[in-house]
């Protein structure tokens, strides 16, 4: 009992500090990193609903991310429709796309499903390149100015600082966590897990497999498209490789697998590791840190070697991390933590 209260208190504390953070942290760089973190959480959590709970490991989530991003940006760019209306259009389109994809891919299982999901996302990417009149092709869509957000006559925000994006990102991350929590604790979640564990058994229990798979897909696709729309308006530029590329799909899946799929906090944990890690590796902060701490001299051969190569090698280290996690923590970090916890409990008994 006290544990639940403690947990709730801790949760509220984190939430409260996230809500007031922009009041105290003015550094746009820090806010930018938080925004990337929120984006990553919502991407991972959206995938988690379909991949983690329903066990349908899509490697084509870039399709929904890209559709959301493109729909919002295209409407804003060509029809001057503000993104907060464009998002709804994005949702409608993404539901149609998801159901079309679902009707193809859900006939297949296991590796075939994975390959089909890749193929569909690639078809969308190539179409975005080739349908130049609709999407502006490989040149992408650039939208610099966001309209001012007003309710009635009151200006809520003009999007000139990072703060509104911070709150949108936070809202999105909380929304996806909330939806996941709801899925986990509703009947839907039980059906999903039944399908994940054994499709045939689930079917014989009278669960409409394809109906529930499609429900899972639609929820997941809508949330991913919201993340895509948010990416579009935040970065202000979309083109086929950055929002529809295969590496976007892999990145989304990676967040869950590193953190732990099918758990509420897995994608959050995954994002908390991947986002800062890739930033630190990319910008050579690790070498700087080692130099500052005094472990490595700045002008020694080791120091120079690290400075020269570590930033080039960050994708390599990323690869090594993936391999290590899969080999030694196949259930992700959450799985690893849980295993440790049960072991401690057993020892205590």
């Amino acid at each position: 009992m006290t544990k639940t209260i403690l947990k709730a208190a801790f949760g509220l504390l984190v939430l409260a500090s996230l809500l007031i953070l922009p009041k105290y942290v003015e550094s746009p760089y820090a806010l930018h990193m938080m925004i990337l973190l929120f984006l990553s959480v919502s991407q991972g959590q959206s995938w988690n609903i379909l991949g983690g709970y329903a066990g349908q490991h899509s490697v084509g989530h870039a399709a929904y991310f890209g559709v959301g991003a493109y729909a919002t940006m295209m409407l804003m760019h060509t029809k001057q429709i503000a993104p907060w209306y464009g998002v709804w259009a994005g949702i409608v389109i993404v539901v149609v796309v998801a159901l079309a994809i679902g009707s193809i891919c859900f006939r297949l299982r296991g590796p075939y499903f994975v390959l089909a999901s890749i193929a569909v996302a690639e078809i969308l990417r190539l179409s975005a390149i080739n349908l130049t009149t609709l999407t502006n092709g490989a040149e992408g869509i650039l939208a610099t100015e966001l309209p001012v957000f007003k309710i009635g006559e009151t200006v809520i925000t003009d999007f000139l600082t990072k703060v509104p994006f911070y709150y949108i990102g936070l809202f999105l991350a909380l929304l996806t966590i909330g939806v996941t929590y709801w899925v986990q604790h509703s009947k839907l979640g039980y059906y999903f897990q039944a399908i994940r564990e054994d499709q045939d058994a689930a079917h014989s229990l009278g669960i409409h497999i394809s109906v529930y798979k499609n429900i899972g897909l639609v929820i997941s696709a809508i949330l991913t498209s919201l993340a895509g729309s948010f990416y579009g308006i935040y970065v202000g530029f979309v083109d086929p490789p950055t929002v529809l590329g295969l590496d976007v799909s892999v990145q989304i899946m990676l967040i869950c697998i590193i953190g732990g799929m099918g758990t509420l906090w897995g994608p959050v944990l995954g994002s908390l590791i991947l986002v800062p890690l890739s930033e630190a590796l990319r910008s050579n902060m690790i070498t700087e840190g080692l130099v500052k701490v005094g472990l490595v001299g700045a002008d020694t051969r080791v120091g120079l070697f690290l400075k020269e190569n570590l930033s080039h090698a960050h994708v390599l280290l990323y690869g090594v991390l993936v391999v290590l996690v899969i080999l030694f923590m196949p259930d992700g970090l959450m799985g690893f933590v849980k295993k440790l916890a049960t072991r401690r409990k057993q020892e205590a008994v």
């Binding site: 746009p28 760089y29 930018h32 990193m33 990337l36 990416y231 935040y234 970065v235 530029f237 950055t242 930033e279 990319r282 910008s283 050579n284 930033s311 080039h312 960050h314 994708v315």
Partner: peptide, 16 residues
């Protein structure tokens, strides 16, 4: 030196 890995959102991190 900042690497943007060819991705716009990462180049933004670098610029920030």
């Amino acid at each position: 030196w900042e690497d943007d890995t060819g991705k716009p959102q990462i180049s933004m991190s670098a610029m920030e």
